[in-house]
Nucleic acid binder design. Sequence first.
DNA 1: CCTACCGATCGGTAGG
DNA 2: CCTACCGATCGGTAGG
Lengths: 210, 210
Amino acid sequence: MPSDGSTSTSDVRSRLLREATRLFAAKGFEGTSLKDISEAVGIRKPSLLYHFPSKDLLRQSVLEQMLARWNEVLPNLLRAATSGVGQFDAVVEETVGFFVEDPDRARLLVREALDRPAHISRLIGEYVRPWAIIVCNYIRKGQQQGRVHADVDPESYVAQIINLMISSIATFQCVGDVTGPGLSPQQRLSRHIRELCRVAKSSLFLPTAN
Amino acid sequence: MPSDGSTSTSDVRSRLLREATRLFAAKGFEGTSLKDISEAVGIRKPSLLYHFPSKDLLRQSVLEQMLARWNEVLPNLLRAATSGVGQFDAVVEETVGFFVEDPDRARLLVREALDRPAHISRLIGEYVRPWAIIVCNYIRKGQQQGRVHADVDPESYVAQIINLMISSIATFQCVGDVTGPGLSPQQRLSRHIRELCRVAKSSLFLPTAN
DNA sequence: CCTACCGATCGGTAGG
DNA sequence: CCTACCGATCGGTAGG
């Protein structure tokens, strides 16, 4: 019975996951203590360890929760990925949207890539290779049809664009302002993403002859 | 007198900087202890603290050393940056080369961007804004001359390409293999960089009419 | 979900 | 450049 209004029901576990995500993204796994996380939720450290038996299992749970959300979005993405120039836009924007919706997802992935490269390699093999191969085949078909630049290296192109989408959102807050202020963060983000999509598309497709 | 062959002269300080760079890049600032660094050099922790009075000053020194090296390379870069399509290649390749020469530089910058975004914002203002403005003006001139795509957003484009160059090398070891193995790391890196340069150029310049 | 407590390790100092 | 040591904090456990 939530009589005090601060703890709604018994979603302590999900609140722990949320605060852990936020703090791991902001200060890193080693830079965050269990005390930081538990007190952000309003409980003591041993209580956290009741929900997550160790710090490392908490880290794994944080990543698993994010990947589970990605698997929810993936069907939409694959549906949009069948063919055509407009569909390409949709795939990029849908993927970017996943990370814009919560930039901590991007920061978490970049940190994990730096801290545990072998783990990220495994996740890539599991979560992105399947549909990366599909995209590569789509690119090669486009090259045969003359819609895609002949000198594109499909595998490397896909790797670069994935990397660009994730890391540019992860570090957006500080690398976004190369040439000074003058715009609101929202405006900068919007320009940033539009240019990201433009780069991805313009470096893939030949200009349409119109 | 270096009689034992392990310590050449008294470059303990520079060896500490080298090992600190390597360990901060690999495991992060919070994930690296002063003991790790000092023992990698073969001395005790208090001896490290004689050369660098605190862990935070060591971090600053590591970054300063890297930025000093960048300032040595910058003149070559600015000389090549004057005009033309071939020159654009030279600038990108020279910049990429700086980070390929030692990928720890890229990892250090990405980690710093995540850990201390305000600090990286300041460094960007100091080290990259000056010549980023020059590049933006060059892009705008190219747009007027019809050599550069009209819909390029110069500021965002520069931010994206800088971000791409650094982060793709920082996380190359794990994100490079989106579509499976089969190539040596050297071959993969070479393909990766070639595609990176192609994306940068192809998304900027209009196809030459030949 | 709590209090009380554990050994280990942290960055840093004293003193030589 | 070392040994010896400091208080603080770490992840984790006992026990309720």
